[in-house]
Amino acid sequence: MNNFSIISSLLDNDFYKFTMQNAVIKLFPSAKAKYEFINRGKHSFPKNFAKILKENLNEMAYLKLSNEERIYLEKYCPYLDSSYLDFLNKYQYNPKEVNVYQKGKNIKMNIEGLWSRTILWEVPLMAIISELYYKLTGKKRLSDKKIIILTKEKLKKYKKLKVKIGEFGTRRRYSYRVHKLVLKILTEERPPFFMGSSNVHLSHIFSIKPIGTQGHEWIMFHAAKYGFDIADRIAMENWLNIYKGNLGIALSDTYTSSVFFKNFNKKLANTFRGIRHDSGDPINFAKEAINHYKKFKINPIKKKIVFSDNLDPYKVASISSFCKKKIYPCFGIGTNFTNDVGVPSMNIVIKMVKALPEEKWISVVKLSNVEEKSTGKKNMIFFAKKILHL
C-alpha cells in the first residue's frame, strides 16, 4: 500500500456499519443492495477527481483486520460474536462493487452487490471524497493550534451544560488528521462526559468503546421486504433478536417520527433504552417522545434521546434546557467537531436506493422529518406517503 491512502484500517468506519453487517449476515445473507452518491451541496469537483478517487478505493482492497484489531473488538464489543469476527477476518473490500465516473464537474457513483459486503463502503467513501475534495481544491484549513483551541472552547460549553456528548463525524471530516486531532482532545476528557466515538479505528487507537447502533438503510431494507407501514417495528424486533437489548437505541425518522411512534409499541418502548433523533424540530420530537412514554406509563426520565442532527453548542444548549428533568438527552456531534476548520463543510450523502430481499429489485426511500433529507425516486416517495397517510 502507498503512503497516500486516506483509509488505512478496515475499522476506519462508523460502528453501526459493523453492527448492521453482523445482523445482515445472520438474517439476510443473500440480500443485495444498491447505493448511490448524492451531491446535495452541488459541489463542483476538479478535473481527474474520479480517477484519483478510484485509485484510493482500489487501495482499500488491501485492508485486512489485524489480530490486534480483532482482540480490541472482542474486548470492547462483546455482542459481536466470534462467527461474525471470523467473517470480518476474511473480509476484503472489492473495488469492482463500486462504479465511479466524472461528467464535467460532477461525480456519479453507485455501489452494488451483496448487502452483507457492500454495507461497509458508504462511510469510508464519503471520508475519502471529503478529504480529496479539500486537497484537490486547495481549501486551506485552520492550523492545528487553532483547531485545538476551538475544540476546547466547545468542550467548555458542553461541560458547563452538564451534557453527555459523543463524536459522530467520520463521514464528512475535513481529513483523517483533523479527525484524530479532535478525538485526541475529546478522549483526554474521558467519561462520563464524553460517551465515545462512532469511529471504530480511532476508538481502537485511543482505547475507548465505539458507539452507535443502526442506520436508516436497516429500516429501508425492511420496508422493501415487509412494507412501509410495519418496517420500523419489524426492524426493531429483528434488532432485539440479534442484540438482546444491547445497542438499544432505536432510529426514529426513516418514515417520519409519527409513523415510528405508531410502531414503537409498549414492548419495544420498554425494551429499547432510547431513541435517536436525526431530523426535524428536536424540541417537538422530545415532546412527542415524552408523551409516548407516558402513554405506556413508562417514566421518560429513565429513557434517552440521542440527538444527532447537525448539532453545535448553541443547539445543544436549547435542547438540553428543554429536556431537563423530563427525559435524558445525549448528543452525537459530527461535522461541527471534525470539519469546523474554517472551510465550508460538504453536503454529500451515499444512500441505499434499491434492495433485493428475494427475487426482484425494489426501490427504497427514506422520508425523514424534513423534505430535503428524503431520498429515493419521486414516484416511490409519493407511493410511500400514500400508504402511510402522510
Rank of each mutant, 00 (worst) to 15 (best):
E68T: 06
T187G: 13
T213W: 01
M220N: 11
F307N: 08
I348C: 07
K17N: 09
G376Y: 04
L27S: 09
N22I: 06
E167N: 14
G104E: 13
S130P: 07
Y91G: 09
S9H: 11
S5V: 04
F4R: 05
K135S: 08
E359I: 13
L202W: 07
K295A: 11
G342F: 09
Y16C: 12
A289F: 01
N94S: 09
K326I: 12
L388Q: 10
K377Q: 15
I319M: 06
K315W: 00
M109L: 15
Y133N: 10
S5M: 12
A355E: 08
K351G: 07
V163W: 02
Y101N: 03
K164W: 01
N291W: 05
I208G: 08
R171A: 15
I333L: 11
K378M: 13
E372K: 06
D12W: 00
L186Q: 13
H201I: 00
Y255R: 06
L88P: 05
I25Q: 09
D232T: 08
V306D: 12
F331D: 08
N347D: 14
K386T: 15
L57R: 05
F37H: 03
Y174P: 02
N299F: 01
N246G: 01
G248Q: 06
I350Y: 00
F206D: 03
K294C: 09
L240W: 02
K351W: 12
